[in-house]
Structure formats: C-alpha cells, structure tokens
C-alpha cells in the first residue's frame, strides 16, 4: 500500500479491482489423493446450486477441482472473507439475511447426502438427463446406442423463446430416450438416459 493512503483503504475500488483480476486464472488444481480430507457440501448461491468440497482444518474450498483457500476475519459487526489471499468480501448477517459487499444475497448449504439423484447417478455410472425447465423438444441429436462423450449435444429444448442445447456431462452410450421430437415437457421430466462405458 502506498504511504499516503489511509489505513484500511484498499488501493483499488471495486470496479478497478474487477478490471485488474479479469484475465487472471486460478490454476490451483487439486490432486485426487487429497480428496479424503474434504467433506462434500451442497450449496446454493443466488439460485445456482453446486457441490463443493471443504477442508475444515485448512479452510480450503474446492470448486470445479480448483482450490480456493479461505480466511475469515471478524471486523466490527461484519466478517471479512479472504479468498485465495487477495479477494476480500465483506459479509454481514442480519436478521436471517446475508449481505455480501452490501448487497442482499441468498445463500444456503448443507452436507451432501449421497442419496441425492445426481450423486446416485454418478455412483451407478449413469446420467439421467431431465428437463431443466418446461419447453418443447425441437430436436434430438442422438439415437439409442450412440456413443457420446462429455459435451456431445443430446437434444435441443426450446424454452422462453430460446433454443437450449443440452449436452452430455459424461462419456458413455445412449441407453434410453424417453421423449419424441415436438413433445412438450415439464420441469424435471425424464429425457434421456446415458450409461457410462
């Protein structure tokens, strides 16, 4: 920090900070053998659900196989979460609400229970694709028996005036197709089953 700056005043305003970090990548990939130290959690931040790993002893959070070391400081009524040593977030808890950098956020977490559909699918070596939202099946790009890999386009769902391509997140083979082209589907309706090779 430069000498003429007030103590505690960051040399970067939020917009400048955001500019500075924009092209930076997190290259801290973790090794598989380290995973034993971590507990799995299901979290939701502003409507996005994801699964993370957390090591209680170090404060490391793992998301998408990348490590985010965290530290928490208590500071006069709010908390400061420091992520990867250089990103500061001011977090405040007030009457059941959570504010991050002064803005209301929705955040919940719970320990991951292996009963969850997603986890079960992983364990049983299959992927059941369900409709993420109601819409119209405008195209099916695979046939039963087709081999697929991560990213292979499976079908196109038209919803909210958009064509949404749904692709496979595993390598495998198409086992079942539950829908037809032109069919209207509701949220969570079964679409396609893919089985790992």
């Amino acid at each position: 920090m430069k000498e003429n700056e007030k103590s505690g005043v960051s040399s970067y305003t939020p917009i400048k900070k955001s500019m500075k970090f924009q092209k930076q990548k997190n290259n801290q990939e973790i090794e598989d053998r380290e995973r034993d130290n971590y507990k799995k959690y299901d979290v939701v931040l502003n409507g996005r659900e994801l699964q993370i790993l957390y090591d209680d002893s170090t404060g490391d959070v793992i998301i998408d196989n990348k490590r985010y070391p965290t530290k928490i400081e208590e500071d006069d009524g709010f908390y400061r979460a420091i992520v990867s040593d250089q990103h500061n977030y001011r977090i405040e808890f007030h009457q059941g609400q959570i504010f991050m950098e002064g803005r209301l956020v929705e955040f919940t977490f719970k320990p991951s229970v292996p009963k969850l559909q997603r986890v079960m699918s992983e364990m049983e070596n299959e992927l059941l694709i369900k409709a993420p939202l109601p819409g119209n099946i405008v195209g099916i790009s695979v046939k039963i028996g087709d081999p697929v890999s991560v990213g292979t386009k499976i079908l196109t769902l038209e919803a909210m005036k958009m064509q949404n391509e749904i692709s496979s997140s595993i390598n495998g083979r198409v086992q079942e197709i539950y829908i037809k082209k032109g069919q209207l589907v509701g949220t969570d309706e079964k679409l396609v089953l893919i089985v790992k090779n």
Partner: peptide
C-alpha cells in the same frame, strides 16, 4: 465462473465458520 466460485467460497467460509447460515 471464476468470480462466482470465489463468492461461493467466501459465503461458505463465512457461513460455516460463524454458524450463521442454516438450512431451510
């Protein structure tokens, strides 16, 4: 995505270490 992940990590760490976030 990266910025979102950092926010998740920050929220999670603050929540888990302060026991202030509960599950509905």
């Amino acid at each position: 995505k990266e910025a979102f992940n950092r926010r998740v990590a920050a929220c999670f760490a603050a929540g888990v270490k302060t026991s202030k976030v509960f599950l509905p």
